[in-house]
């Protein structure tokens, strides 16, 4: 659909749960998590002909939370085995897999820096969900979130200077941004449940999902400027969640 909610096109049907779609850098493909088999797996969907194919990941019981590399040639994602979830990379061409983290904790929601050299991700290795940055080839990670509460779903900004995230604290959810060294944290929103930020290509606007409370709770998409101003609902018919903002089109 367009960023203003117009021209919605359905890419999948409702035969199984699908989650968290992610555009490729040039917008030709979409990665998403599918429960078609009863076990979460990553599918690659060709936007032009809506053809889809399951990604052959490294050996694991569940694969989810995929994102394309900046050149579109590989996928970083989470893979679960024996109760443990770590981050992996798989190359489309060679089919080669690389394991990027190997902690007994949950490592998920990886997002690459614009130059492709680093990955920001979330981990509960400290006991609660926090944000970390490591080299795109794995290795030592440094923690960047130190405020109160839990931090998840980090997304590196297109300009490279900021990381957008979901924060949970004192029973509320927030969408926020911080610099890549963890400084200058700013919360842009606050509600019963906000999550899953995605950046506009120019890095000035963030779109996210907001769910309302209660049995009749609904999910809708909102956008907010990174100044924290101009919060507004994206007008779409029906519920929606997990936006992924595609590239500028020629």
């Amino acid at each position: 659909m367009d960023y203003d909610g117009a021209n919605v096109q359905f890419l999948t049907d409702s035969s199984s749960i699908v989650l968290a779609p992610r555009f490729s850098p040039n917008g030709d493909r979409v990665l998403y998590t599918s429960f078609e088999s009863g076990f979460p797996r990553i599918n690659v969907l060709n936007v032009a002909n809506v053809g889809r194919q399951q990604l052959t990941t490294a050996q694991g019981e569940m694969a989810f939370s995929p994102r394309f590399s900046r050149d579109g040639r590989s996928v970083i994602y989470s893979l679960s085995n024996g109760g443990n979830t770590d981050i992996y990379r798989t190359e489309f061409g060679s089919g080669q897999h690389v394991r990027l983290t190997s902690a007994p904790s949950i490592e998920t929601a990886p997002s690459l820096s614009p130059d492709g050299s680093q990955i920001v991700f979330e981990s509960d290795r400290s006991g609660t969900q926090q944000l970390y940055i490591m080299s795109a080839n794995g290795g030592e990670a440094r923690r960047i979130s130190f405020g109160e509460g839990r931090y998840g779903t980090p997304v590196w900004s297109p300009r490279g200077d900021l990381v957008a995230f979901t924060k949970q604290n004192a029973g509320r959810f927030h969408i926020g941004v911080m610099r890549t060294d963890g400084s200058e944290e700013r919360l842009l929103t606050s509600s019963f449940l906000d999550e899953g930020p995605t950046w506009s290509p120019n890095g000035r606007v963030i779109m996210f999902s907001r769910e309302t409370q209660g049995a009749g709770g609904t999910s809708a998409m909102y956008s907010v400027d990174i100044s924290g101003r101009n919060l507004k609902a994206v007008p779409i018919q029906g519920g929606a969640s997990d936006p992924s903002w595609g590239p500028l089109q020629p």
Binding site: M1, V18, L19, P21, E211, G216, T218, S219
Partner: peptide, 22 residues
């Protein structure tokens, strides 16, 4: 105009998005 052509992928289906309690 360029800005307006941004596409956003939607998950309108099967996620925790609908209001039907069933």
């Amino acid at each position: 105009n360029m800005f307006k052509k941004l596409a956003v992928v939607l998950l309108v289906l099967a996620t925790a998005a609908c209001t039907n309690p069933d």
